[in-house]
Design a protein around this nucleic acid. Structure first.
Lengths: 228, 228
DNA sequence: TTTTAAATGGACAGTAGTGTCCAGTGATAT
DNA sequence: ATATCACTGGACACTACTGTCCATTTAAAA
C-alpha cells in the first residue's frame, strides 16, 4: 500500500555518466526501447513481457515495477510514435522549397532518412492499428494531420484545393503502399524511378538539378548510416 | 488406423438440395467460409479453432475431422485467396480498352467491385504476410504478377518500359495505401477525386465520357450490392 | 559500517489456446 | 431392425501467456 509503483526514481540520472554496459541496471526507457524493437520486427502481439525480459536478461516480474501492466507499456509506445514521426513529416512538408518538385523531394528526404522518420516504426504502428480500435483512432488523427500538411504544400505551389488534396493523397498513400510491399528493395531501384515518380506526383517534369540534389542527399544519409 | 481423415465424403453433395438451415450439417467449406470471415474482420491471430467452432455452433474437436491442424486450414485460406484475387486483377488489367484512362478505369472497376475482387480479404492477407514468412513469399509472388500485368497495360498504350513500371507502381501501391487508410470512407469522396487521380496515374487528362462511364458502373454495382 | 528503499527473481494462480483420445450418436444401406 | 460409418463432443494433457506475492539482493545514503 505504501509503495508507489509509478514514476520510479532512477539512480542513473545522467545516462552518459554511467553507460549501460553489460546489464548493470535496467531503466524504464530500456524496456521501452526493447519493446520498440520487438514491435518493429515482430508486431505488437510479440511484445510480451517474457520476451522483453529475456532480451534484457532480466526477470519478468521486474517489468511490473516500471509498468502498471502490459497495456501501460503499449500506451507509452504509441505516444512516443505519435509525437516523433508525425511531427517530422509535417515539419518537412512545411519546409520552404523553390518548386513543387523540390517540396516533394523534401518529403522524400524525410521518409527515406531513418534519422528523421522511422519508417519501419510507422508501419508497425499501422499494422497494430488494424487490431486495436483506440490505436486506429490515434493513427487516423495522425494520417489526417499529415495529409493536411501535404495538401497545404501543394496549395502553396498554386494547385487548386481539390487537386492539391488528390496529389497529396497519391503521394502519401503511395508511400504507405510502397513501404508496405517493398521496404527491403534496393535504393537503386527507387532512385532510377525517381524522375517518373516526381512527374506522377506533381504533374510537372523535374529538372535535372533537382534530381541530382536528391541523389546527393541519399548518398549522404547512406554514408551516415554506414559510419554509425 | 483404418480411418481416412482426408477427403471426407459429404452427405450433402448438392448444396441446393439441402441448404444449410439452422445447423443441420457442417462441411469443410463451412469452416473455410467462417475462417475467411474471421480473417477479414479480426486478422489471422483470431482464426482459432474454438472461435470458429463457436460461430458454427459446433464442438472444437469436430474441426480435426476436416483439417489436419490449424495450419492446414490457414493453407487452404491462402490458396483460395491467391487464386481468386490475383487472377481477377490480372484479367482486368489485360482487358482491351480504347485509351489508357479507360484501361485504368478497368482496374478501378475490378478493385471497387466486391464481386470481382475481395478488397478486404486482400488486405487481411497482406496483414497476415507481415507475421509469416511463407505467406510473405506467396504475397510477393502475387504482387509481382499483378504489377507486371499493370506495367504491361501501360506499355500497350505506348509508355516506355521504365515509365510504364513507375506508373504501374504508383497505381498499384496507391491502391494498397488507399485501401489501408480509407477503406471505410464514402464512395462520394473517391468519385469526386476521380478525374484528378486519373490525371495523376496516366499523365493524361481524362475525357468526360470516361468519367461518366465509370460513375455509371459504380452506381450499377452499388445497386447490385444492395439488392443481394 | 549499517540502514533502507529500490529493484529483482522464483513460485504460484488463472486463463486461453492447440491437439489427442475415445465413447457415443444418428442417418443410411442392407 | 440393425449394423455401419461418418461425424461429434467431452475430457484430458500440454504449452504459453499475464499478473500477484513475497523473500531476497543490491546500491546509495547515513
Amino acid at each position: 500500500m505504501t509503495r508507489k509503483k509509478s514514476a520510479p526514481v532512477l539512480h542513473r540520472d545522467d545516462p552518459d555518466k554511467e553507460p549501460l554496459v553489460g546489464n548493470v541496471k535496467v531503466t524504464r526507457q530500456d524496456w521501452v526501447n526493447v519493446a520498440m524493437d520487438v514491435l518493429i520486427s515482430d508486431g505488437v502481439e510479440m511484445v510480451k513481457v517474457l520476451v522483453l525480459a529475456d532480451r534484457l536478461g532480466v526477470s519478468r516480474s521486474s517489468f511490473y515495477w516500471y509498468f502498471k501492466s502490459r497495456q501501460d507499456l503499449l500506451d507509452a509506445l504509441l505516444e512516443n510514435w505519435q509525437k516523433t514521426n508525425t511531427e517530422a513529416l509535417v515539419t518537412q512538408a512545411e519546409m520552404p522549397a523553390g518548386t513543387i518538385t523540390g517540396a516533394v523531394c523534401n518529403v522524400f528526404r524525410c521518409v527515406m532518412n531513418p534519422a528523421l522518420f522511422n519508417n519501419k516504426l510507422d508501419f508497425a504502428v499501422r499494422d497494430w492499428a488494424r487490431r486495436s480500435g483506440p490505436v486506429r483512432r490515434v493513427l487516423d488523427q495522425s494520417d489526417a494531420r499529415r495529409l493536411s500538411a501535404l495538401s497545404g504544400m501543394f496549395e502553396r505551389f498554386g494547385y487548386e484545393p481539390l487537386e492539391a488534396l488528390t496529389r497529396a493523397r497519391i503521394l502519401y498513400f503511395m508511400q504507405i503502399g510502397y513501404n508496405d510491399a517493398e521496404l527491403h528493395e534496393p535504393m537503386d531501384e527507387r532512385l532510377r524511378l525517381l524522375p517518373n515518380y516526381l512527374l506522377g506526383f506533381t504533374g510537372k517534369a523535374p529538372q535535372q538539378d533537382e534530381i541530382d540534389d536528391f541523389i546527393a542527399y541519399v548518398e549522404e544519409i547512406s554514408g551516415e548510416t554506414n559510419s554509425a
